[in-house]
Simulated assay, not measured.
Amino acid sequence: MHGPAGPGWLLVALCAASGAYCLLRVRSCVGAARAAARGEAVMGLGMAAMAVPAAVVPPPAWAWLLYAAVFGAAGLHALWAARGGALRTPGRTPGRATGSAAGAPVGAAHHLHHLVGSLAMVYMAVAMAPGADGAHTGHAGPGGVPLLTGALLVYFTVFVLRAGARLVPVAGPAGGAAVAWGARPELALACRLSMGVAMVAMLLTV
C-alpha cells in the first residue's frame, strides 16, 4: 500500500497473525464453520500481502490484478453462501469443535460482511494499480473524500465499534477443561476486530 513503511509493516503483522489464527481455526471447525474460517484466513493473509509497503517492496504491475481476482472470487463465494440464508451448524464431531464452539458465525450476515470486505479489497486493488488515478477515479464527496471510500470507512468503523463492544471475557467450560486455541470464541472475534481495524487503516491510505 502507499503509505509510511512503519505502520505498513504493523498492518502486515496484524493481518498475517489474524490469518494464521484463522488457519488454526480451520482444524477446529467442521462444515460451514470451517468454510467461514477458510474465508477469513484468505482475507487476513491477502490483506497482509496487500499491506506490504510499496516503497520498500515494490509489487509487480500484475500483482494488483491478482489481488483483485482473488478477492473478487472470495466475494462471489461469499455471495453464493449468503444466498442460502442462515446456514445450520453441523453436529459435533468427536475431537472437534462445532461452529458455535469455535466462535465462528456462519449465518447470512457473516457472509454478507465477508462480501463487503472482499469488494473493499477489490476496490483498493483497482485504485492502487499502476495507471489508476487512485480513489479519486470515483465521485468525491464533501472534503474530497470519494463517496465509496467514505461509505466503506463508515461501515468498517461501525463494525469495529460493535465487535469491540462484544469482546468480553468468555466463561471457560465447566470442570476447568482446556479449550483448544482454535475453538476460543473471544480469539475468533478478536481476529475479526483486528481485520476490521486493518481495513479502516488501509482505506485511509487509498
Rank of each mutant, 00 (worst) to 15 (best):
Cys191Val: 10
Gly196Asn: 12
Ala178Phe: 07
Ala178Lys: 06
Ala183Asp: 03
Ala171Arg: 15
Arg192Ile: 00
Glu186Asn: 01
Arg162Phe: 12
Arg184Lys: 14
Ala180Leu: 04
Val179Phe: 07
Ala188Asn: 09
Met199Gly: 13
Leu187Asp: 01
Ala174Asp: 15
Gly176Ala: 02
Ala171Gln: 14
Val197Gln: 07
Gly172His: 02
Ala171Glu: 15
Pro173Ala: 03
Val179Cys: 05
Pro169Glu: 07
Met199Thr: 15
Val200Asp: 06
Val170Thr: 13
Ala190Lys: 04
Pro173Ile: 02
Ala180Val: 01
Ala190His: 04
Leu187Asn: 02
Ala165Glu: 10
Arg166Cys: 13
Val168Leu: 14
Pro169Ser: 06
Leu189Ile: 06
Ala165Lys: 11
Ala188Gln: 02
Gly175Lys: 00
Ser194Pro: 06
Met202Arg: 03
Ala198Gly: 12
Arg184Gln: 14
Ala177Phe: 02
Gly196Glu: 10
Val197His: 09
Pro173Ser: 02
Ala190Ile: 00
Ala171Val: 15
Ala190Ser: 11
Val197Ile: 15
Gly172Met: 01
Val197Met: 12
Leu187Val: 13
Leu203Asn: 05
Val170Glu: 15
Gly196Phe: 11
Ala198Phe: 06
Arg166Lys: 12
Ala198Met: 04
Ala174Arg: 15
Val170Ser: 11
Ala163Trp: 03
Glu186Ala: 13
Ala180Met: 00
Trp181Pro: 07
Ala183Trp: 03
Leu167Cys: 10
Ala165Cys: 13
Trp181Ser: 08
Trp181Glu: 05
Ala177Trp: 06
Leu189Ala: 10
Pro173His: 02
Arg184Ile: 05
Ser194Trp: 09
Leu187Ala: 13
Pro169Asn: 04
Pro185Phe: 06
Leu167Tyr: 07
Ala178Asn: 01
Met202Asp: 04
Pro169Asp: 08
Gly164Pro: 08
Leu193His: 08
Gly182Trp: 02
Ala171His: 12
Ala177Glu: 15
Pro185Cys: 08
Ala171Asp: 15
Ala180Ser: 12
Gly196Cys: 13
Gly196Val: 11
Met195Asn: 00
Met195Arg: 00
Glu186Thr: 10
Pro169Met: 05
Gly182Asn: 01
Arg162Cys: 14
Val200Gly: 08
Gly164Trp: 09
Gly172Tyr: 01
Ser194Val: 15
Ala183Asn: 02
Arg192Val: 05
Val200His: 03
Val179Trp: 04
Pro169Gly: 05
Gly164Gln: 08
Arg162Ala: 15
Met199Ala: 14
Ala201Tyr: 02
Trp181His: 11
Met195Asp: 02
Gly172Thr: 05
Gly164Val: 08
Ala188Cys: 10
Gly175Phe: 00
Met199Arg: 12
Pro173Met: 00
Val179Tyr: 04
Glu186Tyr: 02
Glu186Arg: 09
Pro169Cys: 03
Gly175Asn: 00
Gly172Leu: 05
Val200Thr: 09
Ala188His: 10
Val179Ser: 09
Val197Ala: 14
Ser194Gly: 15
Leu204Ser: 13
Arg166Met: 12
Leu193Phe: 14
